[in-house]
Amino acid sequence: KEFRPGDKVVLPPYGVGVVAGIAQRSVSGVSRAYYQVDFPGSRSKAYVPVEAPHSVGLRKAL
């Protein structure tokens, strides 16, 4: 896996977040693995496909 729990990442347009782990989510009846990204200071979460994280701009924070 490219990202691990605890990694600081950037996800446009949300900003800097932390990978909380990998979650299985069902979309249109198909279960897939997603990185769960939490954003400190907020209750917001984002789910990014493990198979294509760069397709939505997910990258490691510098």
Rank of each mutant, 00 (worst) to 15 (best):
K1R: 12
K1M: 15
K1F: 15
E2M: 12
E2P: 10
R4K: 13
R4F: 11
R4Y: 09
R4H: 11
P5I: 15
P5L: 12
P5Y: 06
P5R: 11
P5A: 11
G6R: 02
G6V: 01
G6I: 02
D7W: 08
D7M: 06
D7S: 05
D7V: 04
K8E: 07
K8R: 12
K8G: 03
V9D: 00
V9N: 03
V9A: 01
V10W: 14
V10L: 07
L11Y: 07
L11M: 07
L11E: 02
P12Q: 07
P13I: 05
P13G: 15
P13H: 10
P13A: 05
Y14W: 12
Y14L: 07
G15P: 01
G15E: 00
G15L: 02
V16E: 10
V16K: 06
V16R: 08
G17M: 02
G17V: 02
G17P: 00
G17E: 00
V18K: 04
V18R: 07
V19F: 04
V19L: 08
V19Y: 04
V19C: 06
V19R: 00
V19P: 00
V19I: 15
A20Y: 09
A20W: 08
A20C: 12
G21K: 10
G21H: 06
G21Y: 04
I22H: 02
I22Y: 06
Q24P: 03
Q24G: 04
Q24V: 13
Q24D: 07
R25Q: 06
V27T: 07
V27Y: 09
S28M: 13
S28I: 04
G29Q: 03
V30H: 13
V30G: 05
S31Y: 12
R32V: 10
R32N: 06
R32E: 05
Y34R: 00
Y35H: 01
Y35F: 07
Q36V: 15
Q36L: 12
Q36N: 03
Q36H: 06
V37D: 00
V37N: 00
D38E: 14
D38S: 13
D38Q: 12
F39C: 15
F39V: 02
F39Q: 01
P40W: 09
P40C: 13
G41T: 09
G41P: 13
S42F: 12
S42M: 10
S42E: 08
R43N: 15
R43F: 12
S44G: 13
S44E: 13
K45H: 12
K45L: 09
A46S: 04
A46M: 11
Y47E: 03
Y47H: 03
Y47I: 03
Y47A: 01
V48T: 01
P49L: 11
P49W: 08
V50Y: 06
V50M: 05
V50A: 03
V50T: 04
E51M: 07
A52F: 11
P53A: 15
P53M: 06
H54L: 08
H54T: 08
H54Y: 10
H54N: 10
V56Y: 14
V56R: 08
G57H: 05
G57I: 05
L58H: 03
L58Q: 02
L58R: 03
R59Y: 10
R59D: 04
K60C: 12
K60F: 11
A61I: 15
A61W: 15
A61R: 05
L62M: 11
L62P: 13
